[in-house]
Design a protein around this nucleic acid. Structure first.
Lengths: 202, 202
DNA sequence: GATTTCCTGGACTTGCAGGTCCATTTTTCC
DNA sequence: GGAAAAATGGACCTGCAAGTCCAGGAAATC
């Protein structure tokens, strides 16, 4: 871990992170132990601490980063091309599908709750995720506006922030209740209200 | 605990719940121990298990219920009288103020993450909170509609669900980032977009 | 092919948080 | 005022999960 990783080392490290992500999703951060992760990934205590010398927190952080990247990836290519209303609906469907499939398994939320506000690393990961996510949505709003589908007066950043908050809340409520009603409502209502400002529509 | 609590017992039990809520807010559920709670509330291990025989989970559940009640209380009287646009803005201010004051201390979210989906009790508390909250918002939308401030075509439940999701997400993002931008955006944008449908306005 | 670095396995230690127990004190209620 | 029930204090136990350590097996590098 001090020098560079050999290909074999990289593979093992990757296996640990991915396996840990699975275990954490299934058991929850509060319950999952290093031994669960060790068992799932077919590794040993020695390896765990070889690749993550700072222990569990460091591993959780790596998993958090992995999951954060996944969140955005799973929304592509839709999130990157929000330039027509149809594209927005396709994106909406992708988001809903992704989280419905995931079920009530919270990765980032509870992961963050565990690593906590104490560590600056965890916070940085979430902030960065939110920033990228919102920027993509904002880009979508901007292209609608520039394409004449929205008036020039629309506040791009506020709109993107509000939509992102709706998604986050919808997911959160879904994790708690098991129902995706709110996630759907947030997206449908948000897009509908936005579209109501389209000068091209009556 | 088997029979009825004496006044003294009730007081102690209440002290434990409130003190536990404080400790959990300050330290986070993952870190706080029964001993922290014991120290803060000036009680003993014996008392903790006297009033909560099923141990930590039962105590956490009681705290969750306490916090859930608090959430709605702190929004009153505004949440109960959302019949004019001005009333909506006052409510918006109350919500933002409440959560800004609370800072990045998540009670319910991480509390729920700890007790987890395993226990049906925790889930029930959150579901009930969401139900009540949304019903209050829906009542507000309904009175706007009945007062002629919104067209009859407005979907009351979807609107309420979307607004609630926005708040939840805004709070969640605030807990992670420390910024209330998204909470404000969700409320401001939501109310503004709703108001844009007011036939009494241009 | 030798040496050095990396990788792997798993036995072991350790600290601590949840939980138990019971003796003592205080309240209740007749 | 005395017995029964409730409340309290704190010493003690126990299990477990994080973290340590080192010895032996693979890979790279020359």
């Amino acid at each position: 871990m001090r020098g560079v990783l050999t290909p074999k080392g990289q593979a093992t490290r990757g296996r640990i992170v991915e396996g840990a992500a699975e275990v954490l999703r299934e058991l929850g951060v509060a319950i999952a132990t290093l031994d669960d992760i060790r068992a799932r990934t077919g590794t040993s205590k020695g390896q765990l601490f070889h690749y993550f010398p700072d222990g569990k927190d460091q591993l959780l952080l790596a998993v958090a980063q992995y999951e954060a990247d996944q969140v955005l990836e799973d929304q592509q290519p839709h999130l990157g091309h929000l330039d027509t209303w149809d594209a927005w609906y396709r994106w909406r469907d992708a988001v809903v599908a992704r989280y419905e499939e995931q079920g009530d398994l919270c990765q980032l939320g509870s992961l963050f709750a565990q690593i906590g506000r104490s560590t600056p690393g965890a916070r940085a990961i979430v902030i960065e995720l939110m920033r990228k996510w919102q920027e993509s949505i904002a880009a979508g709003v901007r292209s609608l506006r520039d394409g004449g589908h929205l008036p020039a007066s629309v506040d791009v950043d506020e709109t993107a922030a509000a939509l992102l908050a709706g998604i986050q809340g919808g997911v959160g409520i879904m994790l708690a209740t098991g129902e995706s009603t709110h996630l759907r409502a947030a997206l449908d209502w948000g897009i509908a209200r936005l579209r109501a400002a389209d000068p091209g529509i009556g």
